[in-house]
Design a protein around this nucleic acid. Structure first.
Length: 980
RNA sequence: GCCGAAGUGGCGGAAUUGGCAGACGCGCGGGAUUCAAAAUCCCGUUCUGGCAACAGAGUGAGGGUUCGAUUCCCUCCUUCGGCACCA
């Protein structure tokens, strides 16, 4: 290697030199040595945008690189790959504008971003680099799509199974098709067909090919359906809900309208329960898990059937509060509900039709804007409330969403805020059926008059108050004991709530903390004798607003006085007995809208035959590649530019004419499984070899931005579970541990943006200070997951630190400093070394890189003061610095006389006994105030420490004339003397 | 509106099974070195009062528990992030 050793820290040459060395020696190429312990550390791969890398990217990449290098030095076989999520709108928008093929733009951008990533010295295995737009990659994305297309979800077994198994059951007639088109078991199968099949039930053989195709489609995990989608005229494509932010497209900010269209969907809802359940075992932050759980949005309740009066049809609703059925005074259907035209009466029809048209034309943005004021129209129809046979009107309103539950609700205005608003506006009756518990009632009535602490300590006016006891708040409180010992009077109220009352004067002397870890609410009610006399009467006041809490039932016939939970159970059972309803679970999560009408995405490996059936392209015919097109402009009719190329569009299948599916997949597709392709990036026979998957999976550490908290991670988990069910992967979850790096703000504490002019260009930072300084600074800024502002002066600070280390180790001739010898360190220097190894090791394990760096700074500052330092200590220090500043460390390591890279050197170990100081300084407090600091041998006993502390002159002054009541000794920390 | 995270010097931040608040870095002030500058080194740097020794206050605000609270509990305020008519 080169001999032109310089005396200066010449980061430019050093970094180039080592990047070349790593590349030429394939230092970080990962072997599939299954005998070694493995560690898979994954970064969220970037979209190769024309702007190149942002300073936010290297933050996560540096953190993962530190871990990767650290794990290697700890003997792990580390998989640390990188690639590009390269399909996507920007390249395509650019193509529309300029006519440049998105592939050209993409290749150019990838080259740029690769160069940027490499200039930071990350230890990726570049042999495994992937690009989602590469046909060799998306061939397997299409293959996975076919897995979805060729599978159905067995609800009984709660897992995906090949659709061929379903087909077989249909063909052998153990399954039949009922009149509604549902697949049902054949009850008569083993009875030699004694009786005929139920009326309208058909066998598979009786169906036409198109009907069969339709039936199977209704089961497939990937299916087509007519759905109300977000159509963005400007982009000429539909967008998923999550790509629409506040009524405009996430990309470009164009308006979006609702429109029914036939689209490809993925049945992610089938996995809702498992996606929710399996969150539990993941080592992800609580916050991210909660975001996912909320997105899935499970709610438990009941489905109830309401009969439509003089019509006979059933209107099914979902409710989480079946206990409020007696308060249902009207119903509301979504305007898009299919039953609306059917039940609308003639006089109401014009108004209803007008409302439906209006609602459909409204963009999501308009809907949001108008959300303040409820709108709606009466259909003229009435439903019968099954619990009390009341005739209640049916309205339509866009505050009821077609996509959630059944698209219709029972409205309980007394206990639902939205229903309350609607009922108030349209003068519909409001009947209270839930009375708040006494505690809630009192708080509702007197919310502004007291707080917990005031109620206990404050000077309220009256002489009588009460403590509120509920099982929820004080499950373990021994109230009998309280009553006995504190002279409280026990008062039992009809609804089971127990109060303990005490005279005002007496309660001041009671130490409630003796009885409860959580203080009871203490309410002074002397000014409200009515409340004591008949609490129920007090709380049954006309509602000023909806009461959405729980309590006990009123106005509910035989269910009166039941508490909310009991009521729910009872009424649900009752409904089931009467055949009027059943317990039910609903999820906010919707099926995933998977098609886009764009050019730059994976084509669907699907053919449409003339007989109306839809079939999969044979696996052996994959990939279905993108053709070249004249123009990238979407057709605007809801079809992609692919539809305009007849020679691509028209093909044959077994000699029959067939048309290719012209939609393409959304950008999420490629990123849903890329972590699997890295395992075996060049496999031409399969997406990955099974034995490699068994060795490397799951991903041990996944680092990326929190913006992917829900979608990417949920979609990837979904695909992974499907692959798991079909036996392609062996773990239920792909990512064991997830860490989110925080956002980096500009130096003005604002989000970085071109318009603010506060964007920091990583290339410039690397050019001015070097990649090692850049890496070090990004880690030194603060905790990895925090949002923090950039500071160029901070970069200079860590750069100065590297300069110092350089001066510590490298002498004026560019050789090792003459101060560094084999002479042993003195004890203090040796302790500093061991403390440093310990802290850096523990901090890396805890992702506390900022404090690891500050400890290395302390080491450097101390060692610079030494007359000489021990060579082995310097070598150890170089090794622990290596994950943070790898080029720098390699250069030092080489100058220390080593010929190999330090990348696989064993991580230095520390001796716990050498991290302990023989003498320590402790604080001496009197009554919690520090009076003195004394230096004592570390191994003193408590009594000895006590003695020394009291002997202190300053302490003597402070306790003069007082009696020492107690002396608290915290070993190694402080002594606190209580004296008065 | 709901959910989540967080509020500590001039700035980024450190310290929590409750035990010396402000590590480390930046900035700033003073000094050394230099013809001068850069670089480097040394000293100081939470605030208030004081020449100083020292005293008092102090981790968003208020209250509580404790010998002792940045850390635990209650109430409130602010900032950031996410979701948003989900019955």
């Amino acid at each position: 290697m080169n001999n032109n050793q310089t005396a200066q820290y010449d980061f430019n040459n050093i970094e180039k030199k080592w990047q070349q060395y790593w590349q030429q020696n394939r230092t970080f190429a990962t072997s599939d040595d299954f005998s070694m312990p493995k560690y898979y550390v994954l970064d969220m791969f970037p979209y190769p945008s024309g702007d190149g890398l942002h300073v936010g990217h290297p933050e996560g990449y540096t953190a993962s690189d530190i871990i990767a290098r650290y794990k290697r030095m700890n003997g792990f076989n580390v998989l640390h790959p990188m690639g590009y999520d390269a399909f996507g709108l920007p390249a395509e928008q650019y193509a529309i504008k300029t006519g440049t093929h998105p592939r050209d733009t993409t290749v150019k951008n990838i080259n740029r971003i690769r160069q940027q990533i490499q200039s930071l010295g990350f230890s990726y295995d570049w042999d495994r680099e992937i690009d989602t737009t590469d046909t060799k990659y998306y061939r397997w994305t299409q293959w996975i799509f076919l897995q979805l297309f060729n599978s159905y979800f067995d609800t009984e077994q709660q897992r995906a199974r090949p659709i061929s198994e379903l087909l077989e059951a249909l063909e052998n007639e153990s399954l039949l098709i009922d009149p509604a088109g549902q697949i049902v078991p054949n009850q008569n199968k083993d009875l030699e067909a004694l009786a005929g099949l139920p009326i309208g039930t058909r066998t598979w053989a009786e169906l036409t090919p198109a009907q069969r195709s339709e039936i199977l489609s209704n089961q497939r995990l990937a299916y087509q359906a007519e759905v109300a989608v977000n159509w963005c005229p400007e982009l000429g494509t539909v967008l998923a809900n999550e790509e629409v932010i506040g009524g405009v497209s996430e990309r470009g900010g164009h308006p979006v309208i609702r429109k029914p269209m036939r689209q490809w969907m993925l049945r992610i809802t089938a996995y809702a329960e498992r996606l929710l359940d399996d969150l539990e075992g993941l080592d992800w932050t609580h916050g991210i898990k909660k975001l996912q759980a909320d997105w899935i949005g499970k709610s438990t309740g009941a489905e109830v059937d309401f009969t439509i009066d003089e019509h006979g049809a059933t209107l099914k609703v979902f409710t989480t509060r079946p206990d409020t059925l007696f308060g249902a005074t009207y119903m509301v259907m979504a305007p898009e509900h299919p039953l609306v035209p059917e039940i609308t009466t003639e006089p109401q029809r014009p108004a209803v039709e007008q409302y439906i048209t209006q609602a459909a034309r409204k963009s999501d943005l308009d809907r949001t804007d108008l959300a303040k004021e409820k709108t709606g129209v009466f259909t003229g129809a009435y439903a019968i409330n099954p619990v009390n046979n009341q005739r209640i009107p049916i309205w339509i309103s866009d505050y009821v969403l077609i996509g959630y539950g059944t698209g219709a609700i029972m409205a309980v205005p007394a206990h639902d805020t939205r229903d309350f608003e609607f009922a108030t506006k349209f003068n519909l009756p409001i009947i209270q059926v839930v009375a708040p518990t006494l505690e809630d009632a009192y708080i509702i009535n007197h919310a502004k008059e007291f707080t917990t602490t005031e109620a206990i300590e404050g000077d309220s006016l009256g002489f009588m108050g009460f403590l509120i006891l509920t099982k929820e708040i004080h499950p373990t409180a021994d109230w009998e004991k309280v009553a006995q010992e504190t002279d409280h009077r026990k008062i039992e109220l009809p609804n089971g709530v127990v109060l303990y009352a005490v005279p005002h004067e007496a309660r001041r002397d009671i130490d409630y903390s003796k009885y409860f870890d959580k203080l009871p609410k203490y309410v002074d009610i002397a000014h409200d004798p009515q409340f004591m006399k008949d609490p129920k009467a007090t709380i049954r006041h006309p509602l000023q607003e909806a009461f959405t809490g729980e309590g006990f039932a009123v106005n509910s016939d035989q269910f009166n006085d039941l508490d909310t939970d009991q009521f729910k159970t009872k009424i649900t059972n009752w409904l089931a007995e009467q055949g009027l309803g059943n317990a039910a679970i609903n999820y906010k999560l919707r099926d995933w809208l998977f098609s886009r009408q764009r050019y730059w995405g994976e084509p669907f490996p699907i053919l449409h035959l003339e007989n109306g059936t839809t079939i999969a392209v044979d696996e052996s015919d994959l990939p279905v590649t993108l053709p070249d097109v004249e123009t990238y402009q979407p057709s605007g009719t809801g079809e992609s530019p692919l539809a305009t190329i007849p020679e691509w569009l028209n093909t044959t299948y077994n000699g029959q004419p067939a048309q290719r599916e012209t939609n393409t997949m959304p950008q999420w597709a490629g990123s849903c499984w890329y972590y699997l392709r890295y395992l075996d990036a060049h496999n031409e026979l399969a997406p990955f070899a099974s034995e490699k998957e068994k060795y490397w999976m799951p991903v041990d550490l996944y680092i990326g931005g929190a913006e992917h908290a829900v979608l990417h991670l949920l979609y990837a988990r979904f695909w992974h579970k499907v692959l798991y069910d079909l036996g392609h992967v062996h773990t239920k979850e792909p990512f064991t541990k997830l860490v989110n790096q925080g956002m980096i703000l500009g130096d003005d504490n604002q989000k970085m943006s071109k318009s603010r002019g506060n964007v920091v260009n990583p290339d410039k930072v690397i050019n001015d200070y070097g990649a090692d300084s850049m890496r070090l600074y990004e880690m030194f800024m603060g905790p990895l997951d925090a949002t923090k502002p950039w500071s160029m002066q901070g970069v200079e600070g860590v750069h100065r630190f590297l300069q110092k280390v350089w001066r510590l180790i490298i002498g004026p001739e560019g050789k090792i400093h003459t101060n560094i010898t084999d002479q042993p360190n003195d004890d203090a220097a040796q302790r500093t070394l061991h403390k440093t190894i310990k802290k850096v090791t523990q901090d890396i394990d805890a992702f506390a890189f900022n404090t690891a760096i500050s400890q290395m700074m302390i080491f450097t500052n101390e060692y610079l003061r030494l007359p000489h330092c021990n060579r082995a200590a310097i070598e150890s220090f170089t090794l622990i610095l290596a994950p943070f500043a790898p080029h720098f460390a390699e250069e030092i390591w080489q100058r220390l006389g080593h010929t190999d890279s330090l990348a696989y050197q064993p991580w230095p170990t520390y001796d716990e006994s050498l991290t302990q100081d023989p003498e320590i300084e402790i604080a001496v407090q009197v009554l919690g105030k520090i009076k003195d600091r004394i230096t004592i041998p570390a191994d003193l006993t408590e009594d000895q420490i006590k003695e020394r502390a009291i002997a202190s002159e300053k302490v003597q002054q402070a306790i003069a004339g007082k009696t020492v009541r107690k002396v608290i000794v915290i070993k190694g920390r402080l002594v606190n003397i209580v004296a008065n």
